[in-house]
């Protein structure tokens, strides 16, 4: 069970958290101006790296905040967690 460092609460067991998909997928500011292909990419295309992966977690059974993390998909090591909007 991972020990994840919530940027607000500190290290907490994985079962308090909920994974929330890939990070830094920006919702287009003006969706009406975006082509079908670009919109589909926003909805469905995600990276699947063998290595460091930027992803979102939510401290669902804790402070309830969403935050970003960098996790290595092979070792499951989370190397950094940051509040939304901050760069690690």
């Amino acid at each position: 069970m991972l020990l994840i460092t919530c940027p607000w609460c500190g290290p907490r067991p994985e079962i308090e958290f909920r994974h929330a998909g890939e990070a830094h997928i920006a919702r287009p500011a003006d969706p009406a101006a975006v082509s079908d292909a670009a919109w589909a990419a926003y909805l469905y295309e995600r990276s699947n790296p063998r290595g460091e992966h930027a992803e979102r977690w939510r401290h669902a059974h804790g402070c309830g905040r969403f935050f970003n993390a960098r996790r290595h998909t092979l070792t499951d090591r989370i190397s950094a967690t940051t509040k939304p909007g901050e760069t690690p």
Binding site: R18, A20, R58, R65, F66, P84, G85
Partner: peptide, 12 residues
């Protein structure tokens, strides 16, 4: 959960 997601991360 969905509304919190948008409130916190999309429309902070």
């Amino acid at each position: 959960h969905l509304l919190e997601d948008y409130a916190q991360t999309e429309f902070p």
